[in-house]
């Protein structure tokens, strides 16, 4: 919590607007000097618990752990594909939401309103089961489409806020040099907005990784589904889901650190001598 307040103080001094989302874990402070932080306690705790469980009681904990790696790969596959689709979709949605053209603006806004109002689980069911009446799509395609559409809408709002946080003077300076609206957006506004956008987008990506557990309802062999099938075979629900939770936790904590490091790199131009 302390680093959260420090972070917003930093951002206030540089005049940035902080967009806070609560779906992912807190992005840790990059290169933090303190060894003891909420992030390091969680990560070390998770790893130590995992090691202790697996060495003390290899049966069943180590068995569960060795059963999961295939699922981790599927989880990563779904997450990576969904990020690749959702980030461009979010950018387009964000640009649409600030577009002067009323048709584009209304279209983007309606998309956001509709998608935000329907739970992701319902969307996954809808695309995989309900739409199968008209066209048959694989469970991977359904998963990626459902998650991308859902998160594209959330990210659209993040992109919109990030773009609008850039002072108007930047646009005026670029336009006065003769850049058109698209050049201004891509050469001047977006490279700067990206810095405000990255932490919440990183957060959304981490939340997305967790939400891929929902695709197990389509019997996709992801991390969650592997856990479910192990538990169904052995009836060891407590042991199985403890390991599944720990693996998810470790992955998301490592990802949040990656986001923090990327964030630090984007701050290069604010450093004074």
């Amino acid at each position: 919590m302390a680093s959260e307040t420090e972070k917003s103080a930093d951002n206030e001094s540089t005049g940035n607007i902080v967009v806070l989302t609560t779906q992912g874990p807190q992005i840790p402070k990059p290169w933090g000097k303190r060894i003891i932080s909420a992030w390091s306690i969680s990560l070390m705790g998770a790893i130590i618990t995992l090691i202790v469980l697996c060495t003390m009681w290899p049966d069943p904990y180590l068995d569960v752990l060795t059963f999961l790696p295939d699922g981790i790969l599927v989880t990563f596959e779904v997450t990576a594909l969904a990020i690749c689709c959702a980030v461009p979709l979010g950018l387009l949605t964000g640009l649409g939401r600030i577009a002067k053209n009323p048709v584009i603006n209304l279209g983007a806004s309606t998309y956001v309103e509709i998608i935000r109002g329907i739970p992701l689980l319902v969307q996954i069911f809808y695309i995989y089961y309900a739409l199968s009446k008209f066209l048959q799509v694989s469970s991977l395609t359904s998963a990626v489409v459902a998650i991308s559409f859902c998160y594209g809408a959330y990210m659209g709002e993040v992109f919109r806020a990030g773009i609008m946080a850039i002072p108007k003077g930047q646009t005026e300076a670029a336009r006065s040099l003769g850049f058109n609206r698209f050049q201004t957006m891509f050469y001047v506004i977006l490279p700067q907005a990206w810095r405000t956008i990255l932490p919440p987008v990183g957060n959304e990506c981490i939340a997305m990784l967790k939400d891929t557990s929902l695709v197990s309802v389509m019997a996709m062999p992801d991390l969650m589904q592997r856990g479910r099938s192990f538990a169904a075979k052995t009836y060891l629900y407590f042991e199985t889901y403890t390991i599944v939770a720990l693996v998810y936790l470790i992955i998301t904590l490592l990802l949040s650190k990656c986001v923090a490091i990327m964030e630090a790199r984007l701050n290069y131009y604010d450093r004074r001598k």
Binding site: P167, G169, Q170, E172, A173, A174, R175, S176, L177, G178, F179, N180, V188, P191, Q192, Y269, D270
Partner: peptide, 22 residues
């Protein structure tokens, strides 16, 4: 398009500098 061409020919300096910080 004509406006963008015209603006190339008219330099502008602002009160707040508006340099590109990145």
């Amino acid at each position: 398009h004509e406006l963008n061409l015209m603006r190339r020919n008219v330099g502008m300096v602002f009160q707040q500098f508006n340099l590109f910080p990145h």
